[in-house]
Amino acid sequence: MNDLLEVLRQAITLLLERDSATWEITRLSLYVSGAALGLSTVAGLPLGALLALRSFRGRRLLVALIYTGMGLPPVAVGLCVYLLLSRSGPLGDLEWLFTPQAMILAQTIISLPVVAGLTMTSIQGADPALRVQLRALGASPLQVTMALLWEVRSGVLVALIAGFGAIISEVGAVMLVGGNIAGSTRVLTTAIVLETRKGQFDLALALTFVLLALTFAINMGTLLLQQRLTRR
């Protein structure tokens, strides 16, 4: 363990040796977290906009819940989803436990508050007079919301990055509701835990390297997109 570079070299060799299994869990990581982020986006952007732009009964409670949700430990979410999807649980008939669907559900619950909360604060940061101006130009409430989301697109992108970051590196929930089943619910993070537990540190490090490279590539891509979207 002394020479980290040496370990890294071994790690890459190991990766190349067991390529198909590694690619499979990498793909599943992307699929599960990508789908969860997609769902969080579809629900979180409108929710964040609603909370930023409208006042209604229970709004403050909802905001407090979202802020709480942003700090929930993934394993706690996983436990709740497990109890929900267990065959003895209320949604047991779905037979989702230990499937990617269960993992997507859990990760959606983890990332939704992040996406909604950060979207809300982004929109709240926009000039309130702009809303009035857009309305005066004849925008319907929906059109105002769309324009504001576009106006604060940098903030929305950050919300999505933060939401993705919260789940791609998350292990507690997917381990519990996915079960880390080889070939069906094993993702990068649970594989890392497994290999560490087994004492296969080289492999654990190699997988960590894959996870890092993946998130780095995604964040780099988003950064470039952000620059393109906001360039002068």
Binding site: E24, L30, G34, G38, T41, V42, G183, S184, T185
Partner: peptide
């Protein structure tokens, strides 16, 4: 944004069958 889940789904098609 709407494409995101689809893209992710495409990338995953060879994963298991579940």
């Amino acid at each position: 944004l709407a494409m995101l889940p689809l893209l992710a789904a495409c990338g995953s098609s060879p994963v298991a069958s579940t």
